[in-house]
Amino acid sequence: MARAAGLSRTTVSYVLNGDFRRIPEHTRQRVLAAADSLGYKPSAAARLLRGARSRLVLMVSPGLESARDTIGGDIVTRLGQLLAEADLHLVWQLGLPSVGRAATDLAPAVVLVAPTEEEAAFADLRRRFAVPVLPAFPGLGGFLAASARAQVDHLAGLGHQRLAFVRPAAPAFDLTAEFRQQAVERRASELGLPAPVILRVDDSRESAVAVLRSLRTRTDPVTSPVTAVCAYNDQVAFALLAAADDLGLAVPAEMSVIGVDGDPLGEWTTPTLTSVRSDTAAFVSDLTSQVVALARGETTTVEARLPEQARVVERSSTVGPAR
């Protein structure tokens, strides 16, 4: 290997063992090119026994076993791509059942965990690992609230007065749904709107139909009827659009619906779905820089944080209320 690269054995050893601090980037690439040409496949276990740094980044996400989150999936996918460019490997583990074994069997360099630093689960996970542990989604509360505020602002701007917030019934969504519900209620209050109606929907079509039927038949002598729905995310919004079709309820003429996540499938629904999207590119870049530095034993001043801005992707499922 050293002869093929035209370098010393020490230099080659540093590169293959992941010690990037001592070697210029062009030299590292020269070694990697030689290794590739020779078909060299390093043994991770042997490297660790020799005291080399692990190249594995472990993400642990308890509570997300059944959560469907387009934005979260996009973040993890892009993070994995950027870490791979830095010669690190992301492993995503859903749930906690074998997290203790993961700590020893995988020997990660850095661990990312779904719980925020304010949650007891974060402290518990930090105790389980002898390597740096970071929140995978820092600033989650502000991030979730931003999308909820954008929903309310959009609907209020169209002239809607009485809103509903429909959240998933599954316990796996409780934490994030609570953040969004509180943000919807708070923003409605700030705009002088009546308190939103809060409803839960499970994974069945019948449940979505029941939710819309209850809104359609709701009688309230004090306030105006519900004319628009803030869905927890696009999946909930898709269910409501299907239920509206079953009931013969015209969207958006009789009921406007807005989702969250900007799922590409929103372009294919009837009507097309208005949604809210946040740009997470800068966050993923910052998180990658932070993780790479820690994995290499370096210090960094970069502090990743999810954005607290969101924009509405306006399509056909929202219009002003009928007069």
Rank of each mutant, 00 (worst) to 15 (best):
S214I: 14
S214V: 12
L215C: 13
L215N: 09
L215Y: 06
L215H: 05
L215R: 07
R216I: 05
R216C: 04
R216W: 11
T217V: 10
T217W: 09
T217C: 07
T217L: 13
T217I: 09
R218T: 12
R218S: 14
R218C: 08
R218N: 12
R218V: 10
T219C: 07
T219K: 15
T219S: 13
T219I: 10
D220P: 11
D220Y: 13
D220G: 13
P221F: 09
V222Q: 15
V222S: 14
V222I: 13
T223L: 13
T223A: 14
T223H: 14
S224Y: 06
S224R: 13
P225G: 04
P225F: 07
V226E: 04
V226G: 02
V226A: 09
T227N: 03
T227H: 03
T227R: 02
V229Q: 14
C230V: 09
C230K: 00
A231Y: 10
A231M: 12
A231F: 11
A231G: 06
Y232K: 03
Y232D: 01
Y232Q: 01
Y232S: 00
Y232I: 02
N233S: 13
D234V: 02
D234A: 04
D234T: 04
D234Q: 02
D234M: 02
D234R: 00
Q235S: 07
V236M: 08
V236K: 02
V236L: 08
V236W: 06
V236S: 02
V236I: 15
A237L: 11
F238S: 01
F238G: 00
A239R: 10
A239N: 07
A239I: 01
A239C: 08
A239M: 08
L240G: 01
L240R: 03
L240T: 03
L241Y: 04
L241R: 03
L241T: 06
L241K: 04
A242Y: 06
A242M: 05
A242H: 09
A243P: 03
A243M: 07
A243C: 07
A244I: 01
A244P: 03
A244F: 01
A244E: 01
D245R: 14
D245H: 12
D246Q: 10
D246T: 06
L247K: 06
L247P: 00
L247H: 07
G248A: 08
G248H: 11
G248M: 08
L249I: 10
L249W: 07
A250C: 11
A250Y: 04
A250P: 00
V251N: 05
V251W: 00
V251L: 10
P252K: 04
P252N: 10
P252I: 06
A253N: 12
E254V: 11
E254G: 11
E254L: 09
M255H: 06
S256K: 08
S256G: 14
S256F: 06
S256A: 15
V257I: 15
V257S: 03
V257A: 05
V257P: 01
I258F: 12
I258C: 12
I258H: 10
G259A: 09
G259M: 05
V260E: 00
V260K: 00
V260T: 07
G262D: 15
G262T: 11
G262L: 03
D263N: 15
D263F: 00
P264S: 14
